[in-house]
């Protein structure tokens, strides 16, 4: 009996210790992880294009869905273009912001939230460091890139590039 009681007591103590220490341990780890994160370079705007209000400030917004001809005609939308256009992501009233589907305004620096509305699994992988590029320290501070650093939001398919030269022929001069 006594041994059983002793056992019961020690199990209780162990439980107590676990319950008391666990939350602080988890939160401590999380904050350590948070502090390692995140440094993101500024969004990749075309030159002299931001802030948008510089031009759009006094302009009456035209909410009509159309193909732009006077300005921004270099932007060719190839991103679900049949169903979307500029003002589905860019905010009509506050031109320096983007908006989510629920109308919430976000900065261009948080554009990944906008992308993640459709590309949920990709956003999850980006947050876990699998999709996208991280540089810096494998055991410390890392630098991330925004989605828009690699994928042009208007035409997101990654562009082909010229490869570096093929390796030298090892039989060169010996054939």
């Amino acid at each position: 009996m006594t041994t059983n009681r002793k056992h019961g007591l020690s199990i209780l103590i162990i439980f107590f210790v676990i319950i008391v220490t666990t939350p602080s341990w988890i939160s401590g780890q999380e904050s350590a992880k948070e502090s390692q994160l995140i440094q993101v370079p500024p969004p990749p705007f075309s030159e002299d294009i931001f802030p948008c209000t510089e031009c759009h400030g006094d302009m009456e917004p035209n909410p009509e869905r159309r193909i732009l001809e006077e300005m921004h005609d270099d932007i060719i939308l190839k991103h679900d273009e049949k169903n979307r256009w500029c003002l589905d992501c860019h905010d009509k009233k506050n031109r320096d912001k983007l908006h989510l589907a629920n109308g919430k305004l976000i900065d261009f620096t948080e554009s990944y939230k906008l992308c993640g509305q459709c590309h949920g699994p990709k956003l999850r992988e980006w947050k876990n460091g699998v999709h996208g590029k991280r540089t810096g320290y494998w055991n410390g501070k890392k630098k991330y890139l925004l989605c828009a650093h690699c994928h042009n939001p208007h035409s997101p398919k990654y562009k082909k590039m010229k490869p570096e030269p093929a390796p030298a022929d090892p039989m060169k001069g010996r054939k």
Partner: peptide
């Protein structure tokens, strides 16, 4: 503590590196 230079240069971020003994590392997630 730095990433290898192939990880740093890869333009598409296809290269991942980390500590296999750290359950929170990118490589363990993969």
């Amino acid at each position: 503590g730095l990433y290898p230079s192939c990880v740093e240069i890869c333009p598409v971020g296809a290269r991942k590196f980390g500590n296999l003994l750290d359950p929170d590392s990118e490589i363990r997630y993969i």
